[in-house]
């Protein structure tokens, strides 16, 4: 769901009869919950889909450092500043684990970065929204990381070994992210009128984009069906979104904050919350590049990459110089 609407390159999910012997053997291993490891045979479409999914997930982590990094210099206390820095560091680390997992599939880091900068690779829609107040830092931790956890826990069981293991490591670190966010919102919600208003305003702006993180309903999506068959998508978008709403509403109620959805209502028959219609036009516009911050995010990423080139090149030149010198001494 950090990787939304991943294209599998497939027009229809193959039945067993339509598969080659290798594909059948591969599918049998997936059904048996045997992990697929690098260097093992896999259908080309599986490999390509995973590269797209994992790299988009990685790009999301790195781009996600930007909206939160925006408030490091303006955190209200030293403690909050240190905690926010730790969270942003973690996101960088998560990007690393995911890029590493993608690289096991035969794509290079440079290639993935180039695809991101050229607009060929996407990242999660949520990071195209601005952090306008300190309260947004709390709301992001609470809702955005909360949504991420919803998606990432099932992915710990996905079929591709390196991706599943990266998810395990990420999940361990992600819980602190959500709790520090809720902690911030809780402090504001229990504060003075101005603080409460800031928290409510933040929730009003981030609620619907957070629901959109899970992606559009995938009942008709052949890509979702194929990814589910390959066990790289474990639960449906709607399923995850419903669980997220069910778990988050009581958290907002506890703080006496109002979720900005007049249609939100507990449905005793279903055992779930009913909620209002999502504006999918907004989602598609943001994905297309017309969200509030898309251009800013890309400018920041491209500039960081280009301005850092001299550091990367100097490090390699230094390493090569030392290696040559050491070889000369040894000779």
């Amino acid at each position: 769901m950090y990787a939304q609407m991943v294209d599998t390159g497939v027009k229809a999910v193959k039945g067993l009869a339509e598969m080659s012997p290798e594909e059948q053997a591969f599918q049998a291993r997936i059904e048996a919950d045997v992990k697929i490891e690098p260097k093992e045979w896999m259908p080309e479409a599986y490999r390509k889909t995973l590269i797209r999914q994992i790299s988009q997930h990685a790009h999301s982590e790195i781009v996600g450092m930007l909206p939160e990094g925006n408030w490091i210099t303006r955190a209200p206390t030293l403690k909050r500043k240190a905690i926010l820095m730790a969270k942003v560091q973690d996101e960088g680390g998560h990007g690393l684990y995911l890029y590493s997992a993608a690289e096991t599939l035969g794509v290079s880091r440079d290639q993935m970065v180039e695809d991101l900068h050229a607009g060929r690779a996407k990242y999660s829609s949520i990071f195209n929204y601005p952090t306008l107040t300190w309260a947004d830092i709390g709301t992001i931790g609470w809702l955005v990381d909360g949504a991420a956890i919803m998606n990432q826990i099932p992915l710990c069981r996905c079929s591709y070994g390196p991706y599943a293991r990266a998810m395990v490591r990420i999940c361990k670190e992600e819980s602190f992210h959500q709790r520090q966010g809720y902690d911030i919102v809780m402090t504001l919600a229990r504060g003075n009128d101005e603080q409460r208003a800031m928290a409510q305003d933040s929730l009003n702006r981030w609620w619907w984009p957070s629901l959109m993180m899970f992606g559009p309903p995938d009942a008709e999506s052949v890509h979702s069906a194929q990814s589910a068959a390959w066990k790289i998508k474990i639960l449906s978008n709607d399923d995850l979104r419903q669980r997220f709403v069910d778990q988050t509403v009581p958290q907002a109620d506890y703080l006496e904050l109002t979720i900005p959805d007049p249609d939100l209502k507990w449905n005793a028959e279903r055992g779930h919350y009913d909620f209002g219609a999502i504006d999918w036009n907004e989602f598609h516009n943001v994905i297309k590049g017309d969200g509030p911050c898309n251009r800013d995010r890309m400018r920041a990423r491209v500039s960081a990459w280009e301005n850092g080139a001299w550091v990367r090149e100097a490090a390699i030149a230094h390493a090569q110089k030392r290696a040559t010198r050491d070889a000369a001494i040894a000779a």
Binding site: L96, S100, E103, S108, A166, R169, E313, A315, I316
Partner: peptide, 28 residues
């Protein structure tokens, strides 16, 4: 001129052996 890839192994405080924890790129 991509930085080469390295595999990282860590031994915990109470551990007897280094465990593989992941990889990273570094020039040296």
């Amino acid at each position: 001129n991509e930085w080469p890839l390295w595999e990282i192994f860590i031994r915990s405080q109470h551990g007897l052996a280094h465990r593989h924890v992941g990889s990273l790129h570094a020039p040296d």
